[in-house]
């Protein structure tokens, strides 16, 4: 199975921040969630991949091809959604489309019109009058209207209400029904990915913390809650993050079975993605 994106040793430095040798892959036929806190490096990574900013080192390949010599061919196959869309707000949606559409060799006007209807968007409406949700949907409509094989989305659901976010996820799932499609979706709203992601990448302070299948990740990690009296120093070391009060403790762990031997009365629950992310990036022992 070919990878849609292969990133190797990507480096980028700004004043007080740098990407530290980022390496990961986005497999074909997968939705890869790219999660991390604000300022972790998600947007920097995505912009480096798209050549919107110049990386200081490393390589990026799309379907085995480097950008040099294949830039147009690669970009032709990628649909991009950045923030809530990056548009000339004084234009109508139809006018903005007329700027973008000619760039793509496989632009499908019929698909664009259909998407606009599905999203209940009027092409003659000015972009400046759109709500955040409508802008996000319009950006997605553009990205889905040129038979892209890969969708790269940088925080597309940021600031959207749960109803619109659910709608957005459903559209992405529909996109994935066709063979050979891939999605790289960056967000700090981890719950959005819980339903749709196949793979997860966590970035923190410019470094990849983990790259793993979502189901495996959720299977590995557990929330353990128990009595403070049963906690020992040896047991503490088994937690990724731990919060203790005078009466009890609660923590995230990959070693639930071992902890149960120390704390027989402890309750073990499934961890959410948010729990797991917080354990890795904000893990604390109190």
């Amino acid at each position: 199975m070919q990878n849609a994106i292969e990133v190797a040793n990507l480096k980028k430095s700004y004043g007080g921040f740098c990407l530290n040798d980022i390496s990961f892959t986005v497999p074909d036929n997968c939705i890869t969630g790219f999660i991390g806190a604000n300022g972790a490096g998600k947007s920097t990574t995505i912009k480096s991949i798209l050549r919107l900013i110049r990386a200081d080192g490393g390589s990026v390949r799309f379907w085995g091809m480097e950008f040099e010599g294949h830039e147009r061919e690669i970009k032709d196959r990628i649909g991009v959604v950045i923030d809530d869309g990056s548009f000339y707000d004084h234009l109508t949606m139809a006018q903005m489309k007329n700027i973008i559409a000619p760039a793509y060799s496989a632009w499908d006007e019929g698909a664009f019109k259909a998407n606009m209807e599905i999203f209940s968007l009027n092409p003659r409406q000015k972009i400046s009058t759109l709500s955040k949700g409508m802008r996000a949907k319009y950006a997605l409509a553009l990205a889905l209207s040129h038979n892209a094989d890969l969708l790269i989305m940088d925080e597309p659901t940021s600031g959207l209400d749960p109803v619109v976010r659910r709608e957005f996820m459903n559209i992405i799932l529909d996109f994935m029904k066709k063979d050979g499609k891939s999605v790289l979706f960056s967000t700090h709203i981890v719950s959005d990915l819980e339903r749709v992601a196949d793979m997860l990448l966590l970035i923190h302070e410019g470094s990849i913390v983990f790259e793993q299948e979502k189901d495996a990740l959720l299977d590995e990690h557990r929330v353990v809650k128990g009595k403070r009296t049963e906690m020992t120093e040896e047991c503490r070391k088994l937690f990724l993050s731990l919060s203790e009060t005078d009466y009890g403790f609660e923590g995230i762990t990959k070693n639930a079975a071992q902890i149960k031997r120390f704390c027989p009365s402890a309750v073990v629950e499934r961890a959410t993605l948010e729990d797991i992310m917080l354990a890795y990036v904000g893990g604390k022992r109190e």
Partner: peptide, 17 residues
């Protein structure tokens, strides 16, 4: 206009131009 809507250059440069 390009200065006012600076972010529009993201989508322009992400497109095959």
């Amino acid at each position: 206009y390009e200065s006012k809507y600076r972010k529009a250059e993201n989508i322009l440069n992400a497109a095959p131009y």
